[in-house]
């Protein structure tokens, strides 16, 4: 995956989120939603996803960023970000996304021989299915959406209590003061 900013949009296209978000329009419509989140009125329901879809998204996101001794996608509320996204900047990709979720259930059923939703499989089976599809645009897009739900501003419904930022040590502050890290701190000591 590329690291420079100019490749980022291209990277999104590669990962598949481009398929979900053609044109990537603005976020103005989201501000009412954002205001509700800021006011602590966290969404108790889903605006776009059905309950079954929300369960599947929650399950996949929890395999992409699992809950360990530290919070993962579930604690971050990634599913709420994704619900918001498919009602907003990614809405043109909703049909493809739903087809991908249906495919997950088909694959789950194939493993179990009875009708089984992906979300009800043991984690190891879920991981095996996801490994089979990890090169697909659907998985790439869902990974991208999961990262957005982990690491973008909590105003969009994910990254609750900034758990994504706390996980990686990102300090979202309006100002920092030097020294910023270990090596400049050590160098400053040497110069004093």
């Amino acid at each position: 995956m590329r690291s420079s900013r100019r490749d980022f949009l291209a990277a999104l296209a590669v990962t598949g989120v481009g398929a979900f978000a053609p044109g990537m329009p603005g976020v103005r419509e989201a501000l009412a939603h954002a205001a509700a989140v800021r006011a602590g009125v966290a969404p108790a329901r889903f605006d776009v996803l059905t309950a079954a879809e929300a369960a599947a998204v929650t399950a996949v996101a929890a395999r992409i960023v699992p809950t360990t001794e530290t919070p993962g996608a579930t604690e971050a509320g990634v599913v709420h970000f994704i619900d918001y996204a498919f009602g907003d900047f990614a809405k043109d990709g909703l049909a493809d996304f739903r087809a991908g979720l249906a495919d997950l259930d088909t694959r789950a059923t194939a493993r179990r021989a009875t009708a089984t939703p992906f979300a009800s499989l043991p984690a190891a089976d879920q991981d095996a299915i996801l490994a089979d599809i990890e090169q697909t645009p659907f998985f790439g897009g869902l990974r991208a959406m999961t990262m957005m739900g982990m690491f973008t501003d909590p105003r969009y419904g994910g990254n609750r209590d900034e758990v994504g930022w706390k996980l990686i040590g990102f300090e979202n502050a309006m100002s920092h003061t030097a020294p910023f890290g270990y090596y400049d701190a050590e160098a400053a000591k040497g110069r004093d």
Binding site: M1, R2, S3, R5, F8, A11, T15, R63, I64, V65, P66, T68, D127, L130, E134, R143, A144, T146, M147, M148, M150, F151, T152, G164, W165, I168, F170
Partner: peptide, 18 residues
């Protein structure tokens, strides 16, 4: 930035999971 950084996966590493 946190989101952009999450797309920068080292060569040979699976970019998801524990």
């Amino acid at each position: 930035f946190p989101l952009l950084a999450s797309f920068n996966v080292p060569d040979g590493m699976r970019g998801w999971g524990k």
